[in-house]
Design a protein around this nucleic acid. Structure first.
Length: 860
RNA sequence: GCUCAGGUGGCGGAAUGGUAGACGCUGAGGACUUAAAAUCCUUUGGCCGUAAGGCCGUGCGGGUUCGAGUCCCGCCCCGAGCACCA
């Protein structure tokens, strides 16, 4: 069966085959131990109301080509798709309309799915997942509870980014230049009680794991920079006339003899204790001022560095010198110990500050190049450093810290830029955090009860939080309570004091917990006659999880999407393991990919999965498709290309082919409407090589010319290699070259007609299916094996050798015998008219022959 | 400022140190057609030349090499990421 049109009617053909694939479940897979598996993962989309963007099909087509190719090569290919559907836009839509976000989400998902099916991706839709589906987020909550149990989730009253525009707290990563990443609203600091995940405990593991993965270098580098590990030392400075010490972190202990002052961050806890009465007012003013400043203002590099004296002094532990202690906001409380030993001779920032306030600058490192300019920030040889003079920076670092260590005035240590992961969001449309807060006394009493039900995820140390003078402890739900679903409401607006909309839904919020039976009853429904000593009143956690949570582990869920007993079925993961290939945008280089690695390594550490420490062995980022004007597509610029319109006008095969033909997959490249007409023409040419004007399949040649056979075999080879190397643009141009040759030669023979369709199929599956069927084949071309090529046909029977004189091309030499000797080649070459001209009467200094390619005569 | 990636015709882009510009688009000319669309053929880096052929040419300046878009050094320009991280 086939669509049966006369001309290349892409609409009829594509719809016919899409229906065929659906009906026959062509792309559905099961574990099959007789075959090697290949797991291809796309970063799953957020199903926005705007529908598919023209950039989506780029990555999806790339992974689809690979999936279809690997299948043809005999692999059991898993290529699933799902929806990262929690998130702000659906919630804001709900705030505006009062319609539950799940309705809106379901709507958007169906649009996305329809669009993706219309492009013909070889996706196993039976494995479709959705992060907002309770059967999915049951396990997201379960993983959170594991983190909680293992002491990796805690609450902290910490300064967080509060965005008034979004009425929500944002993570550091969601704040760009003092404004929210989404919506571009201004943000301010605010103290709130938040859930935090201890990702910093995994800093070293996350760093170490990068060396074992095949990822783009830039992405690895970004993660390394984000983790920001540095090796250095804590050095302790005694405060003159005080019992206190100031701990400073430095990576340059070799410059300790050049310390001329200390600087504390304005938030440093010792400030109040050490400030001299005379300076109290100035200090107070300065500290208050810097608290008011936004981070943007504080970290503006262009501004001159400001600070105030404390009037207190510290003693340099290396030489006993008394130095001033200053406060300045160029020192960050969040890094190291929030205090630094300032070495203006060898640090740009300390130098700037010292210059502003007339503080002494001492040179303690000799620059090898003899440049005397200060500050000199490189390594060198120590001077003015007493017994350490003459040592290199490298040697001195260790020796000085060891020496100070003897008297407990220093310690070797490391520092990280990585902060713990703020995991709370004050939103409705996210996974509820499966925690109930109960009074500390109730918790203690319950925990010491042998019949305590809530042991499954109980941490060693209770997580507690004080509210209105009462201490509450976090009681973790058990697997049997999951999923904890979102209560219905029609008011999605967060409360003005920063709490999630869930805090307003009292029937859900307040519950009675039976700590012996595990029964949880809404307080409203609580029947007083059921009250007994094991019933305690609790308040549910109202924060929800960030959108990253659902995407941290989705690649595991595809393996057994309906599994009810575990996050992933053990047999399924034992077979499919982790993805062999992961493709998605570079915008997720740090956050998603770091968080997912963190969860994966955690799940590995607690034995939930045993498939290796890293989730994504091979990663690739597709580039961005720009508008026709070479700028980023945006509504305001009016340069947005709608994929539906492209499909309507040229078809899915043309869209797929064109996006792959545009240029290298990882590059940014502009869309061109004229360009897609080119590949559309190519598809029509293909059609016309198979089907005559009456719509009948053509008769092919009995055999092809040698020349054509060479091209066909080269094409099979190159297309295969190019797919493996993800060089789809050159694979397509090779197929064009092949078709041009076939066209010139007057058509295919039977063998090449079939082979050409097999290599075309991953790129343009619909037309390939249709023509494959019209050649008389049954079933889907998807199941046809990848063709073999004949290397002997690729080796040409004659060779074209370029003849150069002094490196300039002067002639071409064609030799019929590939094994012609070097001497004979020189003889033939030198006798060509246009070569003779240049070597005549000249002394030949050198003759070079690169076998089969070039002859070069070097003459005086 | 630091780190990384890149700079090739009118455009998107090809080129294991070996014919720079494959393939596609655009432009020009032609065939078919009453005409148009579609299709097909020729041509399309610049300059000189009727041609054969020659000279120049991969951001700029040097270098290595028989030979450089490709390797090395310095500079310029665009893009991305990080950005007072001590």
């Amino acid at each position: 069966m086939y669509a049966g049109c006369q001309q290349y009617d892409f609409d009829q053909i594509e719809l016919f085959w899409q229906k065929f694939w659906d009906k026959n479940k062509t792309f559905c897979v099961q574990e099959d131990t007789s075959k090697e598996k290949y797991y291809i993962l796309d970063m799953f989309p957020y199903p926005s109301g705007a529908g598919l963007h023209i950039g989506h099909p780029e990555g999806y087509t790339a992974s689809d080509i690979l999936a279809r190719y690997k299948h043809a090569k005999g692999y059991n290919v898993l290529h699933p798709m799902g929806w990262d559907a929690f998130g702000l836009p659906a919630e804001q839509h709900a705030i505006k309309t009062g319609i539950n976000p799940s309705t809106n989400t379901a709507n958007n998902v169906s649009i996305f799915k329809k669009q993706m099916k219309r492009i013909g991706f070889a996706i196993d839709w039976e494995r479709e997942i959705n992060t907002t589906d309770p059967i999915y987020f049951k396990w997201t909550q379960w993983i959170f509870l594991q983190l909680f149990k293992h002491g990796l989730a805690y609450v902290d009253e910490c300064p967080v980014w509060w965005c008034e525009g979004l009425k929500s707290v944002l993570a550091n990563e969601e704040v760009i230049g003092g404004r929210s990443e989404r919506g571009n609203f201004p943000v301010v600091r605010k103290n709130l009680c938040q859930w935090v995940l201890r990702i910093t405990r995994y800093a070293d593991k996350l760093l170490e794991g990068l060396s074992s993965v095949d990822w783009p270098d830039s992405t690895k580098r970004q993660q390394i920079a984000w983790i920001g590990k540095s090796e250095g030392a804590n050095i302790f400075f005694k405060i003159d006339g005080h019992g206190e010490e100031i701990c400073t972190y430095t990576t340059r202990p070799d410059t300790i003899f050049g310390v001329t002052f200390l600087v504390l961050a304005p938030e440093h806890p010792l400030i109040e204790k050490i400030v001299a009465p005379k300076f109290e007012n100035d200090v107070k003013k300065y500290v208050e001022n810097s608290r008011k400043k936004s981070d943007l203002e504080r970290t503006d590099l262009a501004k001159t560095k400001t600070g105030v004296q404390t009037g207190a002094h510290a003693i340099n532990p290396a030489n006993g010198k008394k130095i001033e202690i200053w406060i300045a906001d160029y020192v960050l409380a969040s890094h190291g110990s929030g205090a630094i030993m300032a070495v203006p001779g060898h640090d740009r920032r300390d130098y700037d500050f010292a210059s502003n306030y007339g503080i002494a600058v001492t040179k303690v490192i000799d620059n090898a190049s003899g440049d005397n300019q200060l500050p000199y920030v490189g390594d060198g040889v120590l001077i003015n450093s007493e017994r350490f003079n003459g040592l290199s920076s490298e040697e001195a670092k260790g020796k000085i810290v060891s020496w100070l260590q003897e008297t407990k005035r220093a310690d070797f240590t490391q520092n990280y830029k990585l902060r713990n992961w703020l995991f709370s969001r004050q939103r409705y449309w996210g996974e509820p955090i499966p925690i109930i807060w109960i009074k500390e006394n109730d918790y203690k009493a319950a925990a010491s009860n042998d019949k305590f039900y809530f042991k499954e995820f109980l941490p060693n140390e209770p997580i507690s939080n004080e509210k209105d003078g009462i201490t509450y402890c976090a009681l973790p739900l058990c697997t049997s309570h999951l999923p904890l679903t979102l209560p219905p409401t029609d008011n999605y607006l967060p409360s003005s004091d920063g709490e999630s909309p869930l805090a307003k839904i009292h029937s859900w919020l307040n519950v009675y917990v039976n700590v012996e039976t595990g029964q949880i009853v809404p307080a409203d429904d609580f029947n007083e006659k059921d009250r007994n000593s094991s019933c305690v009143l609790g308040r549910r956690e109202t924060n929800t999880m960030p959108q990253w949570a659902g995407s941290c582990w989705y690649y595991l869920r595809y393996l057994s999407p309906r599994c009810e007993t575990a996050i992933v079925d053990p047999d399924a993961i034992n077979y499919w393991q982790t993805p062999d290939f992961y493709i998605g945008g570079a915008e997720h280089a740090v956050l998603h990919l770091l968080y997912a690695r963190f969860w994966h390594r955690f799940l590995f550490d607690i034995g939930v999965i045993r498939t290796g420490k890293e989730p994504f062995k091979k990663l690739f980022h597709q580039g961005i498709i720009l508008g026709e004007d070479g700028t980023k597509m945006s509504k305001s610029r009016g340069n947005v290309i709608n994929p539906d319109e492209v499909v309507n006008r040229y078809g899915a095969d043309a869209l797929r082919l064109y996006e792959m033909f545009l240029g290298p997959l990882d590059m940014m490249k502009p869309w061109s409407t004229k360009g897609i007409e080119g590949v559309f023409r190519f598809l029509k040419k293909i059609w016309n090589e198979y089907i005559d004007r009456e719509g009948n399949t053509k008769n092919f040649h009995d055999n092809l010319s040698d020349e054509c056979q060479t091209v066909v075999n080269e094409t099979i080879k190159k297309v295969g290699n190019d797919i493996e190397g993800l060089k789809f643009n050159t694979a397509i141009s090779q197929m064009m070259i092949c078709l041009n040759s076939i066209q010139k030669a007057g058509g295919f023979d039977n063998a090449s007609a079939g082979n050409f369709l097999k290599i075309l199929a991953p790129f343009a599956p619909h037309i390939s299916e249709e023509l494959w069927a019209r050649l008389g084949n049954n079933g889907s071309i998807y199941d046809a094996p990848w063709p073999e090529y004949d290397d002997s046909k690729i080796v040409p029977t004659s060779q074209k050798i370029i003849v150069q004189v002094n490196g300039k091309m002067r002639a071409e030499l064609v030799v019929n015998d590939v094994n012609t000797s070097e001497g004979a080649i020189f003889e033939l070459a030198i006798n060509i008219e246009n070569v003779k001209k240049y070597v005549a009467n000249k002394k030949i200094l050198k003759k070079v022959y690169a076998k089969g390619t070039v002859v070069n005569f070097v003459v005086e």
